[in-house]
Design a protein around this nucleic acid. Structure first.
Lengths: 245, 245
DNA sequence: CTCAATATGTGCGATAACACACTTACAAGT
DNA sequence: ACTTGTAAGTGTGTTATCGCACATATTGAG
């Protein structure tokens, strides 16, 4: 794989794409492309972070793990963001497990390199902070949604969120995995998925959910989905985009 | 009220107390003390922020409001932090309502003054980012707690969280208000409070909860409380403290 | 083709929280 | 002392989700 290809791919990540030519030139030699398999754990809860990751086609889920082993997702990172914000926010460690929710590619960068670039200020720093702000909205909305909305609505939200970060209508994902993300029983996901399938919004086969009626899902989802989406667009809309040259 | 008094009071806020002498000297003329009554709304959801606030004795609750009017708290800000992080994170607006949960004093600063100081870098910037990181942990843990733990446990958590940010064992707070924070029914809070009172952990009278057995509450609370506490201590422990001179 | 592993479907009783309707208790002002 | 508004307590029936046990379906490896 040559450098040009790497660079082009790296620009699929919105944050990297928002760098100025100068910034990106400095940056690209520090980026290492990595392919990740479903289920790979990038950080364990409590880990000191050695690297940060810019997903391009992979999706990473941020999971909290409770003492009794139950889990719940607080947020999800795709090509819109970066995994490893604790590096520039301070603290250097994470409270969540970061696990690959959908196989794909990420670009890896050493902790120190990321910190250095953040410390320079500039567009990159601005975008990282804005992204963190957007992620906070996502986490907050998840908190509220967990409290106030039905499992069926939340499953809609989760499917749409994944779909947005994917190129495909096909989500390779077992009910069991989804139940870990949503912090509910596996049977609950099965039931909710059946309801959505009955309504013709998705198909629901072993190990895969295929999105059929995106508009229908958007009608069925709770407001939480759109609120988060709007905030991402507002904060991260690529007025600062660049082309690779 | 003279300047010396203001300054001394301002140092009750941990973030302000972490400033270097230089930084604080520059800062203190920009700070305006304000007394806040219970229920005052400092920001409404969607507002553009004109000011940020450093609480000293007041407690501010961050509430999300859903379309159907139901509400849930995502976090709470006391003398450990700052209200208005969107100003330095970017975006300048907030998604949450900020409402005074316990009357008291805050120090107000103009949006631009805060941004300027943040832009200088230094200890202050570091502390603000670390605080934001700690707040994210609080919000995340709330998300998970909402999903996985019982109302009674969450009420414990909420009482302890408030107590930590207060000088008193007396929480002036109706069940109705608490139910808005926790995103549950008022009757649910009544029931949970009764159980805690039966166990001798609190007294439960009209409009006031008095904390009786702090250790007992800590035994009854879910793990979420301690996780958040530890993270605050880790990120914000005042190794960088100063005395006013 | 068969088996083993894995994923999904189903049934049932238990429970926590819900919605709603109402009563009781308290406190402040006239 | 009485009224009024507000806070808290109570009762009943409903619902969503849980926990567990087990049946069925699908897939991949041998």
């Amino acid at each position: 794989m040559n450098v040009t290809n790497n660079s082009t791919n790296a620009l699929k990540n919105h944050l990297l794409a928002s760098l100025s030519n100068d910034e990106f030139a400095r940056f690209q030699s520090k980026l290492e492309p990595v392919s990740l398999k479903l289920g790979t754990v990038l950080y364990e809860s409590g880990d000191r972070l050695d690297h940060a990751y810019f997903p391009t086609t992979a999706i990473i889920s941020l999971l909290y793990i409770m003492e009794n082993g139950s889990t719940a997702e607080i947020g999800v990172v795709g090509n819109d963001g970066i995994l490893g914000i604790a590096l520039f926010m301070g603290g250097d460690t994470t409270n969540s497990r970061a696990i690959v929710q959908s196989a794909g590619e990420v670009f890896k960068i050493k902790a120190q390199d990321l910190k250095t670039e953040f410390g320079r200020g500039g567009t990159f720093q601005t975008m990282l902070l804005r992204y963190t702000q957007a992620l906070m909205t996502q986490i907050s909305q998840t908190a509220v949604c967990n409290r106030l909305h039905s499992l069926e609505q939340q499953l809609c939200r989760w499917i749409l969120l994944s779909h947005d970060r994917l190129n495909s209508d096909k989500l390779v994902m077992t009910h069991d995995l989804i139940s870990n993300m949503l912090g509910v029983r596996r049977e609950g996901v099965t039931l909710a998925a059946q309801k959505l399938a009955e309504k013709g919004l998705i198909t629901n086969t072993r190990g895969t959910i295929i999105l059929i009626d995106r508009q229908g899902l958007e009608n069925a989802v709770c407001e939480c989905y759109q609120v988060v989406n709007d905030e991402y667009n507002r904060l991260l809309s690529r007025g600062i985009s660049r082309t690779f040259g």
